[in-house]
């Protein structure tokens, strides 16, 4: 194995995951820090947005969904679709009620 192969191998093995881990820690710090800012309802929105970004980073780069077959994308997307449907149908009921 030549030097370039060795370097590519160690990048894929641990350097790239370590970089993703650092990004996740920075996002976690941003989420934690922003929770103490007086943003009103913006706090929840920002915290959930950061959580969503963290999950996308985790799923894409650590779960390797980026490199997975299209069928896996469909299955993962199906779980998300049903989740969105559950939220949409539930809240279309609760938010349209008159008390």
């Amino acid at each position: 194995m030549n030097g370039r192969d060795q370097s590519r191998r160690s990048w894929w093995l641990w350097q790239a995951p370590a970089l993703v881990w650092v990004v996740l820690l920075i996002l976690f710090g941003a989420s934690l820090g922003s929770a103490y800012l007086p943003l009103g309802v913006g706090n929840l929105a920002l915290n959930l947005l950061i959580a969503a970004i963290m999950i996308v980073v985790l799923v894409t780069f650590l779960m390797d969904l980026k490199e997975a077959a299209a069928l896996l994308h469909v299955v993962a997307g199906a779980g998300l679709l049903w989740l969105l449907l559950m939220f949409a149908l539930t809240f279309s009921d609760y938010l349209s009620r008159y008390y």
């Binding site: 779980g79 998300l80 989740l83």
Partner: peptide, 8 residues
């Protein structure tokens, strides 16, 4: 996908 709905 079933677990997502369970926690969902």
């Amino acid at each position: 996908a079933s677990e997502i709905l369970f926690f969902g």
